[in-house]
Design a binder for these strands. Structure first.
Lengths: 342, 342
DNA sequence: CCTATGTCCGTAAACGATTTAGAAATGGAT
DNA sequence: ATCCATTTCTAAATCGTTTACGGACATAGG
């Protein structure tokens, strides 16, 4: 059942039917109701392909997920992010198109999505320091929102980010207040922008107390996984002067650190303190009612929701000034931290 | 730059240009090359919206992800699954459209995708026992492939599944050979079809040795998470006759079980044995070179690849007989199993 | 020489909606 | 009765491709 057929059944022109269904004012309310009733009765759904061609809009946004083909690993936060953004798209009649591409092909993917008219805008995931995609997207004129930021990008652009620096700074201050001086960092890969900011948060806090970071306790694991966290903690605990506290960039790393601690017969929270960054992932809850890990918490799902809303705004008002949204992580107290052992 | 403009520049009709670019035979090879060169030079990309309307194909497949709105949790295997399927779509020029919907709205979502012409087919995720979606999709005539199966569906349909029953049967036999008799099951929610099959695998193995399952050791957790695994193991270990082995449906549950074991000062693999189902997720590796957990392993990413290929085949040949692909899990030996303590 | 067969290319009509321009009907005001 | 504005609707163009059909030309066969 298409528009023409429906119009024929009603004895109206396709134009009027279209206008009636889309809420245009120049149609009698009586006919509008008649049209809507008939549309419902005949189960009419406008053909999305035709709408897209006629309006010149794709009614779709793209999420391009870079796949690090060395580790073949997709960022685990991604599932939660799209859970948040997906609902916004649905409510506004937009489709979400996912492209998973090796990271070196990402820029070309944006170009294709754009020039073939498959999307009206994109979300940029996992920005690196000095990420070239930002300049490229600006040049192409494709609306975009970055989840995170890119240090060194001289242009202004739309982003939604959590205050990674402040989060790790506060976490480090908390550990310092507990007397910890040998604080190990179990970071993500430091080509990623968020990792650099988290590291800066730690060094800021140390510097504020006149301490210099011990580079032998700064780990940046290739993957933010349990095993990599475990390995880093093994090293940090076997130093001549072992770490008394760990600051981890992810829950999984934190679990690996805990395993290393307990593997040595030590107790987390008593002998060694651990703070993690908790993205509040649905499938990796930090405890149920009472949190296991002390953590800086910020919901990545919420970030997804905000980024999607921002992108739809940017699409509908293309010459709007760049939008920014900074989220603050909350520091929540769990059972994994305590005063430094005497 | 569109087709008409490109044709004008070449002094040809749009028809000829279209045919040249799409490899139709009725065009001189010399002109074809001229056209291809010009298309490349002017950076011409055919408008996807127009192609879709003209051909009547969506050139897109849908993945409808049910969101259990009680737990607000997306299945964590999903990210790996689409990593596998995504590449197949890309190679064949298909888009992947993701819809994340509360599970009660899922059927309506399929209907919308279909009648508005947004997709040529869908992948059905997370089938339940007696899943009504299968009948609904058959009735609608929308091509689909199920990741998993649905016990009780009287119709035949396309599916890609792992042999869950055999996997858990073999795992249980292995534990029985090691002398274990009190084997706890830490299963997923048993409205899910795969969970029922895994349970059947265990009870099969027990029955083959004349044993009856101890219902007080059969857990079906609402979520397959670390905390739920931990809680189940706490119960299983505090029985009058505690479990000596655990059969877990996921890696995360296994990690929770390990935590419960170690929290009691016991050692996994010596005091208590654990076998997990390992979906070979990219962000949850079971060890690096040598596996931590003894596991039944089957790559969900591979399943995604196979399901995508099957779906594209079904789309291109709609009256093909239903296709099935059964994957066998391999039983890999880790450090989490050993003979039952005396 | 005429016709049949191929080869190569163009014309025009789809595809199914939106949207522009304009016509017909209606209602008041003069 | 005339004029103008407003309301309501229609016809036709448009979006950028694909594709059914047909024409021109060359070559081969009779």
């Amino acid at each position: 059942m298409n528009l023409k057929e429906l119009a024929a059944k009603l004895g109206l022109s396709p134009t009027t039917v279209s206008r009636a269904l889309n809420g245009y004012p120049e149609v009698n309310e009586a006919t509008r109701e008649r049209v809507i009733a008939a549309a419902r009765r005949h189960n009419y759904r406008p053909n999305a392909r035709a709408i897209r061609l006629a309006t010149g809009r794709a009614l779709a946004v793209g999420h391009v997920i870079p796949l690090n083909h060395r580790s073949e690993m997709m960022n685990p936060i991604f599932a939660d992010f799209i859970t948040g953004s997906g609902e916004t798209y649905m409510r506004n009649g937009y489709d979400m198109i996912l492209s998973i591409v090796p990271d070196e092909a990402e820029e070309q993917t944006y170009r294709d999505l754009m020039s073939r008219g498959s999307v009206d805008g994109v979300i940029v995931h996992a920005p690196k320091v000095n990420d070239p995609r930002i300049r490229a997207l600006k040049d192409m004129g494709l609306p975009f929102v970055v989840h995170g930021r890119s240090t060194g990008a001289e242009l202004d652009y739309n982003w939604v980010d959590v205050n990674n620096r402040r989060a790790f700074q506060r976490a480090a201050e908390f550990l310092l207040d507990l007397g910890h001086r040998r604080i190990a960092l179990v970071n993500g890969n430091e080509v990623m922008d968020f990792a650099v900011r988290r590291r800066a948060g730690l060094t800021d806090a140390l510097a504020a107390r006149g301490l210099v970071p011990d580079l032998s306790l700064m780990f940046a694991t290739q993957e933010m996984s349990e095993t990599h966290g475990h390995r880093a903690a093994e090293e940090g605990l076997s130093r001549a002067e072992p770490a008394t506290a760990f600051l981890c960039a992810s829950m999984l790393q934190g679990m690996g650190v805990r395993r290393a601690i307990e593997g040595r017969g030590l107790k987390m929270g008593r002998d060694v303190s651990v703070i993690i960054f908790d993205d509040d992932l649905s499938y990796l809850r930090n405890g149920e009612d009472v949190p296991i890990f002390t953590a800086t918490r910020s919901s990545v799902k919420e970030a997804g929701r905000l980024a999607a809303e921002m992108l739809l705004n940017v699409i509908s008002q293309p010459d709007m000034a760049p939008q920014h949204r900074m989220l603050e992580a909350e520091l929540i107290l769990g059972q994994s931290t305590g005063p430094v052992p005497a």
